[in-house]
């Protein structure tokens, strides 16, 4: 088994109201100096060893992310 991490982020040109809301809340909580926040999704997949990179990319592109509005990265990590 391998552990695979897929990170999905809104594209830079797409408005991210959730990230903005977090950024706007930080000064109110007394945390200064954070100029921008983008909010995305982080997936951890446990996959069999015979699942290849092309398949992982397809999972990310066709399902975990919507490429119209989101960018994605896939990486294998130590379990």
């Amino acid at each position: 088994m391998a552990r695979v991490v897929v990170d999905v982020m809104p594209k830079p040109e797409i408005l991210d109201p959730q990230g903005q809301a977090v950024a706007n809340a930080l000064p109110r909580l007394g945390f200064d100096g954070v100029t921008a926040v983008r909010q995305g999704k982080h997936f951890e997949l446990e996959v069999a060893d015979d699942v290849d990179d092309a398949t992982l990319a397809k999972i990310a592109e066709t399902f975990l992310a919507n490429p119209v509005i989101e960018d994605w990265t896939v990486r294998r990590v130590e379990a």
Binding site: P10, I14, L15, P17, Q18, A21, N66, V68, I69
Partner: peptide, 17 residues
Amino acid sequence: LAEAHLLPGALTRNHEL
């Protein structure tokens, strides 16, 4: 229908949440 690619684009969170 957008997710199924029958229509282009995507629907996202309302701008004021």
